[in-house]
Computed example of a mutant assay.
Amino acid sequence: MTASAPTVLATSGGHRAGTRARVQFDALVYHAVELAGVTGRRPRVMYIGTAIGDAEHFTTRMTEAARIAGFDLTPLHLFPMPNVENIEAAVLAQDVVWVMGGSVANLLAVWRVHGLDAIMRRAWRSGVVLSGVSAGSLCWFQGGATDSYGPELRPVTNGLGLLPYGNGVHYDVDPGRRPLIHRLVADGTFTEAHCTDDGVGLVYRGTELVEAVAEVPGKGAYRVVRRAEDGTAVEERIEPRRLPAAPD
């Protein structure tokens, strides 16, 4: 066991243009490793790119980012078949699972075909830190707002449900996400939703939101709840703690 309790870091960030590579890890990925509490050895990080169809060019970029960061990276590919013999053993051997963005609807369907929904729950309970960006954030929740089905945002409601909330990602850069999340809370699809601007992450111990953290100044996190008096959605800003800058 690495983390002291089941831990999720759900983000709208974690990557940046690199000085020595096309992509390098930003502060949110380093914070996921910090949450795992690794000492005395190189952190073990699994990269999962299901949401972008296991695009090989991005796996290469993540491998290079991990080399620069000093992490041991294991990619998990599911196309055209799993690239490891025992998926559960490979996942449980990690300190951190980092899930790439893309289509959360496709991710959930493919994961369920391969039993990764149950494997991720066991990994979460065992102390593997579950993390990721965009689709890699939405997947841990009941659901949220997604463009998986086309340019017009639609709800996704069949997330893994480790966290009993809705989730809004890219909250400050995609103008359609805030109103859709508010509607989904107001109509009872989600009893509560937790949302992140780009560059912000939410830390959960068990199912409790314990902290918002940011790699970009001036950004926010948000809790959206339904007001009992009139059934409207009410949004509360959560001010994130600024993380130390990631090394170059």
Rank of each mutant, 00 (worst) to 15 (best):
P244D: 10
D197R: 07
M81P: 00
G199E: 07
P179Y: 03
S12G: 05
A66M: 11
L153F: 06
N167M: 07
V29R: 14
N158M: 00
T39H: 07
P155M: 05
A193G: 07
L130A: 08
S134V: 07
P151T: 04
P164A: 02
P164R: 01
R61A: 13
G53I: 01
A89E: 15
L202Q: 06
P247W: 15
L108Q: 07
V156G: 12
A65P: 12
V104Y: 00
P175G: 00
G220H: 14
G161T: 03
V23E: 05
G143N: 03
P151W: 03
D187M: 07
H77W: 12
V216I: 13
R41C: 14
L162A: 01
L180C: 02
L116E: 06
G13H: 08
A233Y: 02
R125T: 06
P247V: 09
P43L: 12
G159Y: 06
F79Y: 14
G53R: 14
V97G: 07
A32L: 09
N167V: 00
A32M: 09
L108W: 03
S137D: 05
A109W: 05
R237C: 03
A90F: 12
E152H: 09
E239I: 15
I238Q: 08
Y30S: 03
V45M: 10
P179H: 02
R16Q: 15
R242Q: 14
A145S: 12
L180T: 04
G168N: 01
F25S: 15
H57V: 09
V169P: 01
E34I: 04
T63Y: 01
G220C: 08
H194I: 07
G150S: 09
G37E: 09
P244Q: 08
E88W: 10
G40K: 02
V203H: 10
R61K: 04
R41P: 06
L35I: 03
S126N: 10
W98Y: 15
F71D: 13
D248S: 15
A212H: 11
H170W: 01
L35K: 02
L92H: 05
R112Y: 05
G127N: 08
T7K: 11
G206F: 05
P244I: 07
G136C: 02
N106D: 15
I68L: 15
I52T: 14
G161C: 06
V8K: 12
F71I: 14
W98C: 05
L107A: 14
T157F: 00
V185N: 12
E239T: 15
V169E: 04
G13P: 10
A10N: 12
I238H: 11
H15S: 14
T196N: 06
F71P: 11
P244F: 04
V84P: 06
P247A: 08
V224G: 07
T157H: 01
R44T: 15
G127M: 06
R121Q: 10
E56R: 13
M120F: 15
E56V: 13
V129K: 08
Y47I: 08
E34M: 05
G136F: 02
V128G: 09
F190H: 03
C195T: 04
T39R: 13
Y47T: 10
P240M: 13
G143V: 04
G136Q: 05
A17G: 14
V216W: 00
M100C: 12
T191F: 00
L107N: 14
S126R: 15
G115I: 00
T189Y: 09
A17L: 13
